[in-house]
């Protein structure tokens, strides 16, 4: 019984939150890795693209709610998602036209593009705050829980409860669908293969009749889609605040680099690795330990390795440790 209680506690406070956070990081890291693989630079504006996309989704959610449209138990934001993606894709394509294309024509060194993306980041940052403000916004509606702690306790008769919020369930399900669709697209479709070909060898892709500008445009659209989805899921799960997305850039890059930049599989593995370590290191293990260990060994302290204030340090510690032993990342991105 104690063991079961320990397991439920673990699920409730570590596994489920980390899994949904990991899914959000993975989706964000996929966008970063895609831009890196195909456009050859680290896009520092990705976090703020997520913020902008989420802001758009929020606006469309309010609009839909105002018209009396609801999705029943699901959040209305899911319905607003396609609209948000469309606007974000348009903005990102416009940015590409107005900014990045100039540097592509110059055959600019990738490091210049990294700095350019920082400029884009600050502008997007400002635009987002200008449109939606700096306050914290909660925009979830519909059913809040798949199962509440109280229901779970009543159902199982255990001392510990297991709460499973619907946003967590939606995050995990959406992430699985999106990732499957992305892999199918990259490995099975003509356009997806042409993107991989471009990532491998730009000139040869061009000599095969692949239109590079089209590859670039499709990449931006997919990155905008991934960013908006990741941002919206994060916003539903926690809350929307423009500044949080700027900060999220750190664990997202850590995930992408740990997994091996340019490798989609690595981005996913990296996302979960970073999320599980962040949650694992900042969780107070006392309760679990009390259930598992014999009474004589019961701990006095909280058994918390680090305060949650330091959670970003965990991403970087992981980054350093992994890169010390595997400089190319876990799944050394074939094309890195």
């Amino acid at each position: 019984m104690d063991l079961l209680n320990a397991l439920v506690t673990l699920l409730n406070f570590v596994v489920i939150p980390a899994a949904s956070y990991g899914a959000q990081l993975a989706l964000g890291a996929l966008g970063v890795t895609l831009i890196y693989g195909i456009l050859r630079f680290s896009n520092f504006a990705h976090g703020d693209t997520m913020a902008f996309g989420t802001a758009m989704v929020i606006l469309f959610t309010w609009w839909l709610q105002g018209m009396g449209v609801h999705l029943g138990p699901l959040p209305t934001a899911l319905l607003a998602l396609p609209f948000g993606i469309a606007v974000t894709a348009a903005l990102v394509l416009f940015t590409d036209r107005a900014v990045y294309r100039f540097y592509r024509r110059q055959k600019a060194a990738p490091v210049i593009l990294v700095i350019v993306s920082m400029g884009v980041m600050f502008i997007m940052n400002g635009v987002t705050r200008f449109i939606i403000g700096v306050e914290e916004i909660r925009f979830e509606d519909g059913e809040r829980f798949v199962i509440t702690a109280g229901e779970f306790k009543k159902m199982t008769g255990l001392a510990e409860g297991l709460a499973f919020r619907s946003t967590q369930a939606i995050t995990i399900v959406t992430a699985i669908i999106v990732v499957a669709a992305l892999f199918w697209f990259l490995n099975r479709t003509r356009t997806g293969k042409s993107m991989r070909a471009f990532s491998d060898n730009e000139d040869l892709a061009l000599l095969s009749g692949i239109n590079p500008e089209r590859v670039v445009a499709v990449t931006w659209i997919i990155a905008a889609g991934l960013a908006t989805i990741a941002g919206t899921l994060y916003g539903l799960d926690k809350a929307f605040k423009a500044f949080n997305y700027f900060q999220l850039l750190l664990p997202i890059f850590a995930s992408a680099i740990v997994g091996g930049l340019g490798s989609p599989l690595g981005a996913i593995a990296g996302g979960f690795l970073v999320a599980f370590s962040e949650v694992g290191f900042t969780y107070a293990w006392k309760k679990v330990a009390t259930y598992v260990l014999p009474d004589s060994l019961a701990p006095d302290s909280l058994l918390q390795l680090m305060s949650t204030d330091y959670k970003f340090a965990v991403s970087f510690a992981i980054l350093i440790i992994v890169l010390l032993f595997k400089p190319t990342g876990l799944f050394q991105g074939k094309s890195v």
Binding site: R40, F41, P110, E202, D203, P212, G262
Partner: peptide, 10 residues
């Protein structure tokens, strides 16, 4: 980790 070499010449 921030840039990928091997861009095209054309």
């Amino acid at each position: 980790s921030i840039t990928k070499e091997g861009g095209g010449e054309i």
